[in-house]
Design a protein around this nucleic acid. Sequence first.
DNA 1: TCAGTATGGGTAG
DNA 2: TACCCCTACTGAT
Length: 271
Amino acid sequence: MPEGDTIHRHARNHRDLFVGRNVAASSPQGRFSAGASHINGKRLEAVEAVGKHLFYTFEKRLMLHVHLGLVGSFRTHRTIERPAPSRGTRLVLSAGDAAAYLTGPMKCELLDRIEVHRLKEWLGPDPLDPEADVGEFASNLATRTGPIGAVLLDQDVIAGIGNVWRAELLFLCHIDPDTPANELTSGQVDCLWTHAVTGLQHGVEVGQIETVTPQAIGLPKGTQLRPSDKRYVYKRGGHGCLLCGAEIAVSRHGGRALFYCPQCQDPLKAQ
DNA sequence: TCAGTATGGGTAG
DNA sequence: TACCCCTACTGAT
């Protein structure tokens, strides 16, 4: 279930398991057989995540591009005794005891360096890129007149944000989803970027999206939160807001359900 | 067994 | 905006 933090976590794992090694590649499903045969046995030189995209650089400049889409997933195994890949497995990468099984990706393809460059150029700044900063994000927002609730999903504005993070970021910054993106204050833009950076970094470490801390909702540090209380708004429609108690509402922005608190994100209160 | 659902994104109209 | 694709899982029948 991938947003940018999940993708960067995969990149980190695959770097540890495969970089510097000759990697066996196959496509049990058959839909990537030709591509897999090109990289089979090649030495993997680098794995990079940009937003929701993964790029694998093999020797001889072979580049593998993976985008998991909505339902794609990687499962890694670290023992030689592992389950046989299911029939739908698009790609198996393995080296020694380690293997990664890829199922259901939206993209699994070999690209040349120019195509990779074009794709990276198109993407907006990635909050998990140490060299990215709020400046490019701010200038991208300034060119968009649509509601921020929809614009935050545009990967050429900010790369790696998905449906969970957009809802949580807007809540954390008390921003009404209908606010035109180019009318956000610099304080609001800074807030979105700062929470994106720290939140996604936390997601990479813990392997899930958690935005609520016990202290933030008045509980002692170390209190175990229920899974449903680890996010402020996402999928909490109809439940009470953890901060003000108002009922979490659902609207549609960018064609997808957006959860928000009408009280905490009231534009009149933000002024 | 089938329908519904999901943290995404491309395309047609 | 609607529809489509991709797969795994859940709950209803």
